[in-house]
Design a protein around this nucleic acid. Structure first.
Length: 356
DNA sequence: AACTCGGGGCA
DNA sequence: TGCCCAGAGTT
């Protein structure tokens, strides 16, 4: 009898945790575009966009994207230029490349339908442990965990886990904990409830709203007074500063852009011509002359700064008018309208555009 | 295990 | 300014 009693106690604990979390979610769930129609395709697109990106940022991108590219098949065939344009400003641009690659694989190997199994999902480019779990649970209601940054924080507090949440071991530990709690019949709502809880109540940096938390009676960090010290997170690496000179070069009413290389930062996106270091007007004029142009005007623009995760660009800019033929191979002369409608140019350069 | 890869919002 | 965000892939 004894093991059965313990078993029942454990079941009651789990049921109560599930019920209180799910009841809270039924009342407080955020209304989000991908929640009104959680088709596998829309869930997938939303999860890809949401990687390291806030919900509020994603919403307009998601709406535009699924409106213009409504299916796996259309995604598999979309022009790269158009794909990147739809992603412009969202960051982590290889996610867009992964989406198209995965769509092509889904058409070829799964007849255009997203696979249901975690392992098959994870085999697709851009779909890792979290995203596979999110798609499987939200789109297919399969009881698997989907541990993102929110869930890591929430469950580290619930279990008073003082491990460094950047440590993969700690993440695995928390995944195992979620597995013991996840309901067999309502996994999608359960996972999304944990994320909403993290986004709205169980906030980072020691400022959670514990009085509003539906599961505070289960939270060991709350009962032990450790909420402000959990989760533990190791320090990030320091950012390096990089000085650059950005050129907006005008020729016959058009502006010069060029394509970035296919690897590394902002791969395959378009950029304004730019050079390492702070160049003087004279140095810029010399560069343009060596390219075969005659400089008719050059003015200094306002300095700008762009902060990436691990680099910071400090940028000096010049607006330059040129005449002549030039002898360039990798510059492209484009109009304002083409820049707005066609070419994907990352945010780092926006400060040097006339539209901004 | 450590790096790389964007951009924005908020204290 | 620093931190964090519905992370994934490479080395």
């Amino acid at each position: 009898m004894r093991p059965l009693v313990i078993y029942n106690h454990r079941m009651n604990y789990i049921n109560k945790f599930q019920n209180q979390l799910l009841n809270w979610y039924r009342q407080k769930a955020r209304e989000l575009p991908w929640r009104s129609d959680p088709s596998p395709y829309k869930v997938w697109i939303s999860e890809a966009m949401l990687q390291q990106t806030r919900v509020e940022t994603v919403i307009p991108y998601f709406n535009r994207f699924v409106d213009e590219i409504p299916s796996v098949e259309s995604l598999a065939e979309v022009e790269d230029e158009r794909l990147f344009k739809l992603w412009q400003g969202l960051g982590y641009y290889r996610r867009a490349t992964y989406l198209k690659k995965a769509a092509q694989a889904i058409v070829k190997e799964y007849n255009g339908h997203l696979p249901v199994s975690i392992n098959e999902l994870k085999s697709l480019p851009g779909i890792g442990a979290y995203t596979a779990g999110a798609i499987a649970s939200i789109a297919f209601n399969i009881p698997v965990p989907a541990v993102d940054g929110n869930v890591l924080r929430v469950m580290a507090r619930v279990n008073a886990d003082q491990g460094n949440i950047r440590n993969p071991e700690v993440k695995k530990r928390i995944e195992e904990l979620v597995i013991t709690l996840i309901p067999t019949n309502n996994a999608g709502d359960f996972n999304q409830a944990l994320m909403d809880l993290g986004a709205g109540i169980c906030l980072p940096n020691g400022t959670p709203k514990c009085n509003e938390c539906p599961v505070k009676e289960f939270c060991k960090a709350y009962s032990k007074g450790l909420v402000s010290t959990i989760p533990v997170k190791s320090d990030k690496k320091e950012r390096k500063m990089l000085e650059k000179t950005i050129l907006t070069v005008w020729w016959n009413g058009r502006m010069a852009i060029r394509k970035r290389e296919s690897k590394g930062l902002l791969a395959n996106l378009w950029e304004l011509p730019n050079y390492e270091g702070f160049l003087s007007k004279e140095q810029c004029v010399l560069i343009l002359e060596q390219l075969g142009f005659t400089v008719t005007d050059i003015t200094t623009m306002k300095n700008a700064r762009h902060i990436f995760t691990h680099i910071e660009w400090v940028m000096k800019g010049y607006s330059i008018s040129v005449e002549g033929e030039g002898n360039l191979s990798d510059w492209k002369w484009v109009t304002d309208e083409e820049i707005r409608g066609i070419y994907s140019i990352p945010t780092a350069f926006q400060a040097f555009f006339p539209s901004s």
